[in-house]
Design a binder for these strands. Sequence first.
RNA 1: GCCUUUGUAGCUCAGGGGUAGAGCACUUCCUUGGUAAGGAAGAGGUCCCGGGUUCAAUUCCCGGCAAAGGCUCCA
Length: 647
Amino acid sequence: MKIDVTLPDGTVRSYDEGATAMDVAKSISEGLARNVLAAKVNGEVRDANRPLPRNCSLALLTWNDAEGKSTMWHSSAHLLAEAVEALYPGTKFGIGPPIEQGFYYDIDLGERTIGDGDFAAIEAKMKELASKKLVFERRAVPKAEAIAYFTDKGDEYKLELLEGLQDGEITFYTQGNFTDLCRGPHIPDTGSIKAVKVMSVAGAYWRGDEKRKQLTRLYAIAFPKQKELDEYLVLLEEAKKRDHRKLGKEMDLFTFSERVGAGLPLWLPKGAALRERLIDFMKTAQEEAGYVQVATPHIGSKQLYVTSGHWEKYGKDSFQPINTPQEGEQFMLKPMNCPHHCEIFASRPRSYKDLPLRLAEFGTVYRYEQSGELHGLARVRGFTQDDAHLFCRPDQVKEEFLKVIDLVLLVLKALNFEHFEAQVSLRDKEDRSKYIGSDENWEKAEQAIIDAAAECGMKTVVEYGEAAFYGPKLDFMVKDALGRRWQLGTIQVDYNLPERFELEYVGSDNAKHRPVMIHRAPFGSLERFIAVIIEHSAGRFPLWLAPEQAVILPVSDKFVEVAQGLAKQLKALKIRTSVDERNEKVGRKIRDAELAKSPFMLVVGEKEAADNTVAVREHGQGDLGSMSTVAFAAMIQERIKEQLALA
RNA sequence: GCCUUUGUAGCUCAGGGGUAGAGCACUUCCUUGGUAAGGAAGAGGUCCCGGGUUCAAUUCCCGGCAAAGGCUCCA
């Protein structure tokens, strides 16, 4: 009997019955066979050494496929477990899945602990075991036998996992001396695991439940080549160098104070100016797009949030109400601006002719985050949103989405983000009971979002079931210079708040209608956005945003006055500049200016003083030669225009 | 909040039961210079906070605070 195997390119090959994916690989080339980690058979990832079903489609998975990679990491987790069991006999095992960057295994060491100092020994053991090319053997096991095995071993975690499994669907995988309850699939043998690194150790609750026992989680990563591990470590180093917390300190942008409180950033002059520039940029763009600015206080009565529903949903996990001393009234620090904006909408009768009404505010909001969740500027307890709420008619949703997408694209361009996609979150296809708002409106809005994203030519991913209960949304997923993904910018339809605040407008039919509300924040929060752009740009901000655009370096004390005159000229032309008046040599001043990431350095000495020119040096580019002061200013302004898409 | 790690000069970090260390930054002086570190001298500390052990604690122990990583990615 022969079986037919269809390969991804459409070719059909014939094999003897019982052939495995590995056999197919070998028939194509030895090199391919060496690299095969797993196989995708009829869309399902399986062991490469399992016999293929008759007439199937087959894709051979290697390190270059996401699924091949995660299979390798999953197998590496088993290898980690084997090493740990060898070094720490009696260890009990929880789960050990692959993750985005590597894998982990949750283990219970009893009274023992593992620290950074133990990693090297674990890595050495893993490498030793891996080099034996231990084969991963799959075996279907009756439930009773599986229970007997782990009872005998004394591993209560595996026993608990077994409870949730049906007899007949249980499989064991064994490599070397280690047998694990596992669905698989796995790589053929441990030989392809050439480089491993234990990254960190952390506590993790069994089954993610904080009431249950905390296990020790070992994070690690593995590669088929030492070189790839080295490159990965270099990338981590680069990420560390770009860490916004480090750069923020070096560049005097912001700081934190224990006395002020954790998660409450203090903006230093240069950082505050940076914020202002971002705000100005957005205000200008919003003004053109027909927004109006509003301003609302930092607190609001508790009743406001009872009305909005936020009290019920987030009340006990928020900063608790502030009480007035005399009347005992309760106020909340505002966790969002929308309830205030709803009241502005409701402050007078609205006609359909007033819509869309676009209320914008750089509103600072306060949210309680658990102390362990705080992270530099990326996760704080007080932050400013570039918030706006668009009140419109259902038929205006698409138009408004288009305009907001334009705004976000403008932001992404101005900050040199080149890789991004739209993630559209829609209702669950099956269960529609958990959503508020009419079916008709939802369908209209969902279609409007999809159409708007398509019209803008955005790469779009649609996620069903990811919508909030109050409406569908579109998020921008952005890749930074190191290939890390961030969620920036969000546009959300909301049917809930207009309902709760009983917002209305008078239609052309002279009847009352409920407006649709759209929340949107292109930056998201200024704090988080700045964290991302610091890391994306490694602190080398686009010229229009840079704290200082040019630093003037007099060749010696004799030319300080000339330099000051030049600074005055440039400032009049709206170029941010300063003079390095220190009694140092030019070489030293240049070095310091390069390290400070000043975009341009202007060297002035006898020659420049004589003919009113500047010797221009660009950061990271070197000497650009001399030009007149006017020409330099024009060049800067030209570059900024281009960057901001104003040209 | 919980687990692991960390907390020493403005910054980066070494050290260690008995008077506190380096490099950079800072101050002063010398030097007056042309595209990535000129030279010298000096100043700078509640060794995170509180308690305990000790003749003696920055060091060891306990507690707190803050920071970093993790606690979602289901054998």
